[in-house]
Computed example of a mutant assay.
Amino acid sequence: MFYLRGMTADSTLHLGQKARARGVTSNAAGRFEAHGRLAFDDGWDIPHAEALLRTEVATERPRKVISRNDSPDIPFDRSINPYRGCEHGCSYCFARPTHAYLGLSAGLDFETRLTRKVGVRAVVERELAAKSYSVAPIAIGTNTDPYQPIEQSARVMRDVLKVLSEHNHPVTITTKGTLIERDIDILVPMAAKGLVQVGISLTTLGARLSRQLEPRAPVPVRRLKTIKTLSEAGISVRVMLAPVIPALTDHEMEAIMAAASGHGARAASYIALRLPREVAPLFREWLSTHVPDRAERVMARVREMHGGQDYDPEWGKRMTGEGPWADLLAQRFAIALRKTGLSRELPPLDRTRFCVPPRTGDQLSLF
Rank of each mutant, 00 (worst) to 15 (best):
T289L: 15
Q212S: 15
P97C: 12
T98P: 08
V291H: 14
G234T: 01
L114W: 09
G323A: 03
H290W: 13
A259P: 09
E50F: 08
P276E: 01
V160H: 06
R303M: 13
T25Y: 04
H169D: 03
R158I: 00
L224D: 03
R208Y: 06
S231R: 07
L187M: 07
T229F: 10
A28Q: 05
I235G: 13
L108R: 12
V118D: 05
R158E: 11
A247D: 07
K317I: 01
L273H: 10
R359W: 10
I271Y: 01
P47T: 06
Q363N: 03
V124F: 11
D73S: 03
P47V: 11
A49N: 02
A29S: 13
T144R: 05
A295P: 13
P146W: 00
T320Q: 00
D45M: 14
H167M: 02
K339I: 00
G36C: 11
A334T: 05
Y147C: 05
L104K: 14
A95L: 09
E125Q: 15
G23L: 07
L102D: 15
M305R: 08
Y83H: 08
R223K: 13
T249P: 11
V239L: 06
E214A: 09
M1K: 08
V219H: 10
A39H: 10
S269M: 10
I235R: 08
P347F: 12
K162T: 12
D183V: 01
S11M: 12
R216T: 07
L230N: 02
V156Q: 06
A334V: 00
F283C: 05
Y311E: 02
G361R: 05
A130R: 15
I180R: 05
F40S: 04
R223A: 09
A51D: 12
T249G: 04
R344I: 00
G177V: 00
L342G: 12
L273Q: 06
S269C: 10
E296V: 02
A19T: 04
T352N: 15
E111Y: 10
L287A: 11
D109L: 10
T12L: 02
A19P: 15
F333V: 01
P146I: 02
L202A: 03
H306K: 00
T352C: 08
E214L: 08
N143W: 14
F2E: 09
F32N: 07
A95N: 06
I74S: 11
D77F: 10
S26I: 02
L342K: 10
H167P: 03
R338D: 15
I184V: 10
E322R: 02
L241K: 06
P220R: 01
I180G: 02
L104P: 09
R63G: 13
